[in-house]
Design a binder for these strands. Structure first.
Lengths: 343, 343
DNA sequence: ACGTGCCAATGAAACGATTCAACGGCGCAG
DNA sequence: CTGCGCCGTTGAATCGTTTCATTGGCACGT
């Protein structure tokens, strides 16, 4: 019974028209008289015809698909970026298919291969390690590529990324504007570049105030546990040596610090100590004291990445652009007494 | 310069062989003499030939791709399920491409359309609402489908899912085994079926102990905030009416309850009150008191889903199977005093 | 009545890979 | 020397769609 899938030929036969006409109904409905169109449509519905994308693409030479390769779909940053990219692509008649490299170079390479064989319109890649050479050959073969959350040092392809220095700056400036002067920066060596950038931004902000001081405390990792550890040590200092503002290099650290500070020492947040994190993970809004944080403009990045890619697809010779966004400050109760239990 | 992509014909010309021979090098290397094989390979490398999947698939009639449609890639359950599915597919020479329906029926339908047009080998779908009719037509057209995290009431297609009744049972049995007798179940109306199942399992466990009582408390939502609310109300009861074990229908509720109970009343967890959640979200391990929880066997589900699908692809007439897994209990400090600060 | 234009519809060519029947050359047995 | 079988290679047919030059039919103006 399940002999062969229904082809455009079958539809044509049943509707009593030529295959070209069926194709026109599908792709250029205006070229076909309404009576014929109706007849063809009836045949399509009746037979349950589904267009064979492989054949279409073979003839057309191009697909309507964009490949997106992310480091980790479990990471909310990437999942919400993917969502935005999908929406933007859909508005332009394309579809995003997602590949999860899981930070694994091999899987990344496999997805690049698959997408290239599928002749996707272009790829958005948040690369593991150095994809320089790989991207180079892709581009040589005419495959548009946009890097996500990473800039290409050689400016060979467009990219969207975030300015972590600006993020660090705006976090600490926020503390300073709230009147804090004894600032502690908590970070770990993991993901060196980002942490270093955030620290650099923090320094920059502190230097604008003569009476402000910045102390750097190193954590073992970028985790809640490590943060709790650091928080415990800080909370046990004599009152005179306590900071009045803490900026953590990510939210997990900040949540750990918060747990320790509230429980061990009973300090009040934000009255005694203002606390700010980075990344704005889901849970930050639900912490005992909702955590102020710095977040990447994820949706904007996703949309922009797709737009850059479409731009390059339309005019392959257009100039490559490196778009760098400033992150945004999300104010919550951990720095602003007025706001309470905000979502 | 970028005239046209390199085709198998170009490779054949450069290597001085027929196109059929190039195809054989790619698909049946043993049929070709090693000297020819080498010559062809050199031509491929030199020209940067990439196989056109559309043409291959058009001729072959089938792709090596599996479509996976999930409710929300941001949800750790789905991202880790996807990871497992990808691994299992890769071991079988297939590739998984991911579509995120974002709980939106329209997007779900769009991905089903796209995947069907792409003639994927089969689809794994965690459906939004009722996909019954849709799945029916897919199957009629010979497209293998396996449902994920949902059973098909009409048994028309295979599925992998989890027994939430068993989960609720094992959670409460765990509390009972720790000597707790005054149990509270906290749930909300959201996601009715799952919550109802977990409650049913809880009741079942309580009924096995004559001296145990179960009280059901309804929360406004399945969120941390709602949990904090419920926790606050419970913590303010007179000592005689306090429960000694609380089972929350998900981890967010449980974390909210924990926050309230620890801060408002200063009760000790687990000494005064044992607490158990459901889902085992990432954050549960990092709560102030690490949260005992119940988790779905995600990796196993992902692999099994792919296996069921491949089975159906190989023998389309094979019997449909509904695989239902029991969840697993993850013991942490919120119920077991001995375990402390476990990861 | 005849030519002109226009619109709808036609059907064959093309896309690039795979497949397979046919072919040629070579070695070996009779 | 001839015939047979084997192996490696060939090239045409094929998949389902899109595209486009061509055709057929109809209405209208002269």
């Amino acid at each position: 019974m399940d002999s062969r899938p229904v082809s455009i030929k079958d539809v044509a036969d049943r509707a009593g028209v030529a295959v070209g006409t069926v194709s026109n109904v599908l792709n250029h409905p205006t070229r076909v008289s309404s009576s014929t169109r109706e007849r063809v449509q009836t045949a399509i519905d009746h037979l349950g015809f589904v267009r064979n994308d492989a054949a279409r693409q073979l003839r057309a030479g191009q697909s309507r698909t964009i490949g997106l390769i992310v480091l980790d779909v479990g990471n909310p940053f990437f999942s919400s970026l993917a969502r935005a990219a999908e929406d933007c692509a859909a508005e332009n008649g394309s579809t995003v298919v997602l590949g999860d490299s899981g930070q694994d170079v091999e899987r990344e390479a496999r997805y690049i291969d698959v997408f290239e064989q599928q002749r996707v319109q272009g790829m958005l890649i948040s690369p593991v390690g150095d994809v320089g050479p790989r991207v180079e050959t892709l581009r040589k073969r005419g495959m548009p590529v946009v890097l996500v959350d990473r800039v290409d040092a050689q400016r060979r392809c467009s990219s969207v990324s975030v300015d972590d220095v600006a993020g660090g700056y705006m976090a600490v400036r926020h503390l300073l504007e709230a009147g804090r002067r004894r600032i502690v920066f908590v970070g770990a060596k993991a993901e060196f570049q980002q942490v270093a950038d955030r620290l650099a931004g923090a320094r920059q902000a502190v230097e604008e105030h003569d009476d402000a001081v910045l102390e750097v405390v190193e954590a073992d990792a970028m985790t809640v546990l490590a943060g709790r550890d650091v928080g415990g040590r800080i909370a046990q200092r004599p009152p005179g040596e306590l900071p009045d503002g803490i900026f953590c290099a990510n939210d997990l650290l900040a949540i750990g610090v918060m747990q320790a500070v509230l429980l061990i020492r009973g300090l009040r947040i934000p009255e005694d100590l203002a606390l700010i994190g980075y990344d704005d993970i889901d849970f930050s809004a639900s912490a005992v004291v909702p955590l102020t944080s710095v977040r990447k403009p994820t949706e904007l990045m996703g949309r922009t990445a797709v737009e850059l890619l479409l731009e390059e697809i339309e005019s392959p010779s257009s100039r490559r652009r490196q778009v760098i966004f400033d992150p945004e400050l999300v104010e919550r109760g951990s720095t602003t007494a007025a706001v309470h239990a905000a979502g």
